[in-house]
Design a protein around this nucleic acid. Structure first.
Length: 422
RNA sequence: GGAGAGGUGGCUGAGUGGUCGAAAGCACCGCACUCGAAAUGCGGCGUGCCGGCAACGGUACCGUGGGUUCGAAUCCCACCCUCUCCGCCA
């Protein structure tokens, strides 16, 4: 959510920044709404003030037993009572209209975010590891005997679900545990087990609502299944005023994530890449405005360190303005090499949201001796567990059909060195 | 699911129809005292909007939305949320 005052101060700058996302100018329309809102509010307040003034005078007149004066004032207030409800309605409607319009405008890209319309304009910043070249199968083609079962899942739940059994289930679990442990031990994140079902307000806070309702699952009691732990973890600070000394807050969680994938028909229909239900280890940081850029780099390094520990080749992409998510002002994607697809695929996305989510959540901190200010929020995956499993399967498959378990995971696998087909 | 209690400023917590944007304490900020600190004293200390260069002034806001009333933090209704006890349950 944007601060209308900032838009008012610099409408051209606002529109110019939105244009980098490929959006039409909106500042003029918003300012018109805001002027309407303020005019309505002022008009209402003037009427209320007059009513209050008269009411006090009535009290005074009655105390002095001047009943005829009181009666005249009461008549005047009776007239005001007929106009005030309409003024209240107008003020509320103007307020709602401005809010509704602001709520669907995405965050502005940071100045160092490159121009561009889609992922083809993203910029590769770094690359790590040696991708294995050659003709390698994709994981659905060889992981069945290792315990990956899409047919059973389809019978039980439909498409975009998977059943993992035996060694591959254990490997999946090991990956999640490993990543969670690293985030806590090496990077100082606090482990959290958050709710997976959340309220509208939480979804609004992290911007899944109102614009992207169709991407998530709704429960029968009007909650939402979280599409990412970012929702639960970031909302941990909603409506709070933190002490500056508490910051940064760093949270990590291993959770199930649920996505409707409404607009993804036909994309990634094979394999584990795009599921309705998947596990992800999430990182969320809450910082002061001054600290968020450095925190963004640190968070991204935390995610990269996991890929490096697993020996998975990857590259860091700086997303262009047109490819960033709604709430982000700057995003790094980490893309892991998948030999089966012979290309890099997203496995982590680390975003600095600035105060965009904080304003929606009213999440603030108090600088030493100062007034409360909005915090900055950041979130990133470290990493998507299912996609990491895919990467391990495809990068570590041996010619005999077995999959070598990366050294870092072996302590979580009881020392097992490889998965072998049943 | 049943019964009850409650939602007031950063926190605790007074306040049951007008003089309440709201006592008091804590926290915080400034000043005084001090070599310095503590303690103490004095003052300040919420947010939106409008006006003003500013100082400041005005106005609204006491969970949310309705209602009663000339006038609502205070009375009534609905909703949301929290807590306690009982029941059920991993």
């Amino acid at each position: 959510m944007h601060d209308i005052r900032l838009i008012r101060d610099d409408p051209q700058g606002f529109d110019a920044a939105l244009a980098r996302r490929g959006l039409e100018p909106v500042a003029a329309a918003l300012i018109t709404l805001d002027e309407r809102r303020r005019a309505a509010q002022t008009e209402l307040q003037t009427a209320l003030a007059r009513r209050n003034e008269a009411s006090k005078a009535i009290g005074a007149a009655k105390a002095q037993k001047r009943e005829e004066v009181a009666a005249a004032l009461m008549a005047e207030v009776a007239g005001l009572k007929e106009t005030i409800p309409a003024l209240e309605d107008a003020a509320r409607e103007a307020d709602t209209a401005l809010e509704a319009n602001l709520a669907v405008i995405p965050n502005l890209p940071a100045p160092d975010v490159p121009a561009g319309a889609d992922e083809s304009d993203n910029v590769q910043l770094t690359i790590w590891g040696d991708p294995r070249e050659g003709d390698f199968p994709e994981h659905p083609e060889f992981a069945g005997p290792l315990g990956l079962d899409f047919e059973s899942a389809a019978a039980i739940a439909g498409t975009r679900f998977a059943v993992l059994k035996g060694g591959i289930a254990r490997l999946h679990r090991a990956i999640g545990q490993f990543m969670l442990d690293r985030n806590v031990a090496d990077w100082g994140y606090t482990e959290v087990i958050p709710p997976l079902l959340v309220r509208d307000a939480a979804m609004f806070g992290t911007t899944q609502l109102p614009k992207f309702a169709e991407d998530s699952f709704r429960t029968t009691d009007d909650r939402w299944l979280i599409p990412t732990a970012e929702v639960s973890l970031t909302n941990l600070v909603r409506e709070k005023i933190l002490d500056e000394g508490e910051l940064p807050l760093r949270f990590t969680a291993l959770t199930q994530c649920f996505r409707a994938e409404a607009g993804a028909a036909g994309r990634d229909t094979k394999g584990l890449i795009r599921q309705h239900q998947f596990e992800k280890v999430e990182l969320v940081s809450i910082t002061t405005p001054e600290a968020s850029e450095a925190e963004h780099e640190r968070m991204t390094r935390a995610a990269e360190s996991i890929l490096e520990a697993l020996g998975l080749p990857y590259r860091r992409m700086l997303l262009c303005a047109g490819d960033m998510g709604f709430a982000a002002r700057k995003t790094y994607d980490l893309e892991v090499w998948l030999p089966g697809q012979a290309r890099y695929r997203e496995i982590s996305s680390c975003s600095n949201c600035g105060d965009f989510q904080a304003r929606r959540m009213n999440a603030r901190f108090r600088p030493a001796g100062g007034k409360p200010e909005l915090v900055h929020t950041l979130n990133g995956s470290a990493l998507a567990v299912g996609r990491t499993l895919v990467a391990v399967l495809e990068n570590c498959q041996e010619s005999d059909g077995s999959v070598r378990i990366p050294d870092a995971l072996r302590p979580h696998m009881g020392g097992l060195e490889a998965l072998t087909p049943a």
